[in-house]
Amino acid sequence: MASTAFQIIAFVLTFLGLMLLHAATVSNYWKYSTSAKNIITSSWISEGLWRSCVATSFGSVQCKTFSSLLSLETYLQVCRALMIISLISGMCGILLSLLGMKCTQLGSTSENTKIKISITGGVIFILGGLSSMIAVSWYAAQVTTQFFDSLYGGIKYELGTALFVGWAGSLLSILGGIFLTCSGCKEKHRSQKYDYAVAQRTNKSRIYIKKSEKVVPVQDYV
């Protein structure tokens, strides 16, 4: 019962992490900049992985998708790839964790097979969380480097809300994956211990039966 509850908690954490990572991936607020000379004429510029947006204090918002993939900076292309990998890993991990739960039954799947599936799902979640963590941290490092560089002549941005959402989603995915992997390893150890105990009792029973056998001598009658 405790193991099932542990698996459910791990599944909830990883599911929430996947939702946060999805929200961060499609968000346009990975970085932002504001030019606020006064409240009336203030404007905001924000960028994400896929497009940039300009908003004014009058409520108008205009967004433009990045037209060319090859013209983008290297770190932006890598961050895109890592976030997509984390989302795909999260979806695969969700499927495997559902199949590996003790409270689910699919055909005649053995207990050892479900344990292996659960451990595999946990490892996939950890790898996906690490991928998104690298992407978000690298992007944040680029923003802060440009912001504090006195020789940088472009627009200086600040950290957007999507970065913090991405960090939270990465931590939840890694934490849920660790919980799921530890739960599977614990069940595997318990299963091996139970099999060893059963084997020991079987061997003792066989020895007892052999000892209890009586040999009846054959007597010759003349």
Results as ranks from 00 to 15, higher is better:
201 R>M: 11
215 V>F: 08
6 F>Q: 03
213 E>G: 07
222 V>T: 14
94 I>F: 12
156 K>T: 01
218 V>F: 10
77 Q>F: 07
25 T>W: 04
154 G>V: 01
2 A>W: 12
168 A>Q: 04
99 L>N: 15
175 L>T: 15
196 Y>V: 04
67 S>C: 08
102 K>E: 04
179 F>D: 02
58 F>I: 12
36 A>P: 05
57 S>N: 15
5 A>E: 14
184 G>V: 05
38 N>I: 03
219 Q>F: 07
101 M>Q: 01
202 T>Q: 08
152 Y>D: 07
153 G>F: 12
3 S>T: 15
180 L>Y: 03
71 S>G: 10
7 Q>V: 06
210 K>W: 11
174 I>G: 01
44 W>G: 04
15 F>K: 13
210 K>M: 10
58 F>Q: 11
136 V>S: 07
9 I>C: 11
213 E>H: 07
204 K>C: 08
43 S>F: 03
169 G>N: 03
109 T>N: 09
167 W>Q: 03
16 L>A: 14
19 M>K: 05
153 G>C: 10
185 C>L: 13
158 E>N: 11
108 S>H: 08
80 R>I: 15
182 C>K: 10
165 V>C: 01
192 Q>N: 11
208 Y>I: 07
34 T>D: 11
165 V>W: 02
48 G>A: 03
211 K>R: 11
180 L>H: 08
150 S>P: 13
5 A>S: 15
94 I>L: 15
21 L>D: 00
120 T>C: 15
18 L>K: 04
145 T>W: 08
209 I>R: 09
213 E>C: 06
192 Q>E: 10
114 K>N: 02
177 G>F: 04
4 T>P: 08
174 I>Y: 00
6 F>R: 04
127 L>Q: 06
85 I>E: 00
86 S>I: 02
141 A>G: 10
140 A>C: 15
128 G>M: 03
30 W>I: 02
12 V>Y: 02
196 Y>C: 06
84 I>G: 02
37 K>T: 08
211 K>E: 05
24 A>K: 00
111 E>S: 11
32 Y>I: 10
91 M>S: 13
202 T>E: 09
48 G>E: 00
218 V>C: 10
143 V>D: 02
87 L>Y: 07
185 C>G: 13
145 T>C: 10
64 K>D: 06
79 C>M: 02
37 K>N: 09
73 E>D: 14
83 M>H: 14
116 K>V: 14
179 F>C: 01
38 N>Y: 05
174 I>C: 02
13 L>D: 00
4 T>D: 13
54 V>L: 13
26 V>A: 07
38 N>D: 09
5 A>Y: 13
101 M>W: 03
159 L>M: 09
180 L>M: 14
204 K>L: 14
